[in-house]
Write a protein that binds this DNA or RNA. Sequence first.
DNA 1: GACCAGGCACATC
DNA 2: GATGTGCATGGT
Length: 222
Amino acid sequence: MKRILKDFYTRMEARYGPTGWWPGDTPFEIAVGAVLTQNTAWSNVEKAIDNLKHEKLLNPSAIVECPPDLLEIALTPSGYFRVKARRLRSFCEYLISRYGGSMRRMQRQPLESLRPELLDVHGIGPETADDILLYACGKAVFVVDAYTRRIFSRHGIVKPNIAYEDLRRFFEKNIEQDLHLYREYHALIVYVGKDYCRRVPRCAACPLGPTLKKGQPILREP
DNA sequence: GACCAGGCACATC
DNA sequence: GATGTGCATGGT
C-alpha cells in the first residue's frame, strides 16, 4: 500500500506539482481561508478575503469587534455568509482568549492538545481543523476531504463511505510523516479532484490511471 | 436553469 | 450512529 500511495504522489506531482500550498500570506489568513472555503469554490473565497483586507478586517480583534452585518457583507461572495460570519467570529474569540490573538503562540502548542481544542470551536470540524493545523500551524496532519474520499474509493483503495478519521489514519499510516509531503499531497489531490473526480464522474484521463469498474472489489481495506 | 463547490451543526430516528 | 436538512454565492 505504501508503494501505491507513493506512486500516486509521483504521478500527481508530475502532472501538477509543485503547488506551493496553501494560498495565503499569513497563518491567520490561511485559517480564515480554511473556514471560508467550507463547501465553497476557492475563487469565491478569494473575493471575500479581498473584502476583509480592504475593510482592514483581516485580524482577530477587528473581526470580533466588527458589527455582525458589516462582517456578513464582506463575506457575501463566499456564500453561507451568516453562518461563516459566526464561525469566523468564534474562531477569533478562541484565538484571542486562548492565545492573545497570536497564531505564533498557537503554533507552539503540541498537536495532541491543539487538535481537540480546535474541534471544540464552533464551526471548526475535522477538515477545517486539519487544514489549520497543517497549513497554518505547521503540524504534520494529513488532511482528507471530499476529493480524497472520492478519488481513492474510485481507484479501489478505500470504501466510499469510510469515516473521516479512518481515512486520515489510513494515509498517516501509509505515507511517511513529513510536513512538506503532507501539504503537497493534499494540494495535489484537490487539483486532480477538480479536473477528474467531481460528483458526476469525469475520470477518463485521470493521471492516476483507470478508475474502479462497477462491482469490482476494493483493493484493500485500511 | 440545473448542477456543483476543498463542511458543519443540528434534528430526528 | 446513521441519515437528512439548512445554509448562499458564483462559475460552468
